[in-house]
Write a protein that binds this DNA or RNA. Sequence first.
DNA 1: AAATATTTTTAGTTTTGTCTAAAAATAAAA
DNA 2: TTTTATTTTTAGACAAAACTAAAAATATTT
Lengths: 220, 220
Amino acid sequence: MNFSLSEENYLKTIFHLEQHFKEGVSTNAIAEKLETKPSSVTDMVQKLAEKEVIRYVKYKGTTLTEKGRKVAIKIIRKHRLWEVFLVDKLDFQWDEVHEIAEQLEHIASEELINRLDEFLGFPTVDPHGDPIPTKEGLIKNSQKRLLSKLSVGEQGICVGVKDSESEFLKFLDKKNIAIGSQIEVLSKEEFDHSLQINLDGKLLYISKLISDNLYIKLDG
Amino acid sequence: MNFSLSEENYLKTIFHLEQHFKEGVSTNAIAEKLETKPSSVTDMVQKLAEKEVIRYVKYKGTTLTEKGRKVAIKIIRKHRLWEVFLVDKLDFQWDEVHEIAEQLEHIASEELINRLDEFLGFPTVDPHGDPIPTKEGLIKNSQKRLLSKLSVGEQGICVGVKDSESEFLKFLDKKNIAIGSQIEVLSKEEFDHSLQINLDGKLLYISKLISDNLYIKLDG
DNA sequence: AAATATTTTTAGTTTTGTCTAAAAATAAAA
DNA sequence: TTTTATTTTTAGACAAAACTAAAAATATTT
């Protein structure tokens, strides 16, 4: 079965939103993510339910069927492999690739994506630390963790922030914490959950507020 | 200015057809190439004329404006660079890449295509021997010539056929002439314009009917 | 030059995916 | 438990890009 660009974007979005919803994904949530109107979402989910890629109950939200999940995972696989290509081969920065990958993920050829996978050396995570689904549709748990969740001794590189408010980003800048920084947890303070870390070779103290908003991709 | 996928396909097609039309490109010719109806073409060329990328005179056909030519050349540049990528990096065969490149040519990022160009080592021709326009929009003459137009001593590789009728392809197969074959013109017979060629190291005689239908990409 | 054939355009629909405005269902507050 | 607020759906409209059928313009024959 074939899906339009728009349908693919809906399926991908519902897949991502499902991870944060216990029940079905709400119409409003989809609308917000896709920057569209709730009424448009209703139209589309009705169509997708006809195609049996989602389960949709009026006023109750939607969930992907197994069929829909497979389609979504294929798109995510393509997106993440292209991101690796852009960063590893074309030397793009991590923060520059998302928009381009949003387009590349809709290129249809199955053969293309499998050859690209091979060309890239079968990577398991994308530049943001998110896992790349296999050809068979298997997807590992994310290697991306909040800095505050790391144990003493664990290390990795900073791959993103949770809350990207300007104030927070300025603070990070002042402390020389950037995307790409190597970070190792040296010790934890039980009382206030602050951390002592090794940042690119230098010693640094980090409060819980900060460590709760930094994503780390674990080494290895 | 931005163009839809459909508009881009029209501009590209008109560019290609202009090479075979003295006056304006006919509505029917565009319709045939794009496998659509003439009435749809009329609608679209009127829209493109509004956008000043083509000149359109009712019943007289269309020609690209300088603006339209630039857009078309950009798309062709992308198409051909992606073809090089698919063949050189992902080991696709020449006859497998066209369809995929038809999709990739519509990926928008200018930065992407320039980096891809660099990654591929600034190639000047695509796998079919067609020239790749530069970043500035300059496009060289094709290095692809009919075998019958080569002079004695010239050599290259076979990159395509003009008339791809099944009978003809079978004949080529029998003679061991294939896409990728190295061909050198050893001598020409004035009387019937038949050729003596070196085909991958072996001597072969070729009639005018055949040499008029084989495209050669010159070496170097 | 008139008749015929071909090409091109116009007029009116259709499909896809979106929108606005209003109605209906559900959730939250008084 | 009413009332109010929020969410979701329906109904109707619109733009893009295609289509069919018929009319108009151009080309080709006779």
